[in-house]
Amino acid sequence: MNRKQYIEFAEGRAKRTSSLKNCIWAFITGGMICVIGQLLFFVYSTFMKDEKSAYSLASVTLVFLAGLLTGLGLFDKFANFAGAGTLVPITGFANAVASPAIEGKSEGYIKGVATQMFVIAGPVIVYGSASSVIYGIIYYIYMVIAGNI
């Protein structure tokens, strides 16, 4: 077996997780998290007039809950079968921020917690804001050409 044959052989037989089962779990858990968000929205819209703020507060609540489950050591057990179902909703972002923060405690609050907090979620903020700026530039040019500014 030469090198190329070995790589092909090894990668070919490496079992991937059953995708159908993963997808079903991702669908159910991801859908349920969004339903919880929707229910929270209904609660918040009873005292908040602005729809956007109510959705925003619903997301903040989910961030809180996901972080709490992370701290209690339950989130990763849940994510192990939910996969993308907990990753894609804002809960995945909250877990990605909370888990290195909790673990960073062994290096102290400055060098550990704060430094490591965005070790996983940092790229989301970096490329999120970068793409919003690019989008902003395009939108601005469009507005100038259209004569709105």
């Binding site: 997780t17 992370t70 939910a82 877990n95 290195p100 909790i102 673990e103 996983i120």
Partner: peptide, 17 residues
């Protein structure tokens, strides 16, 4: 796990290999 992969509480799926 801390050193080579993810924080312990990070939710990720392990591949069977």
């Amino acid at each position: 796990e801390r050193q080579f992969r993810f924080p312990l509480e990070y939710g990720s799926q392990r591949t069977p290999t």
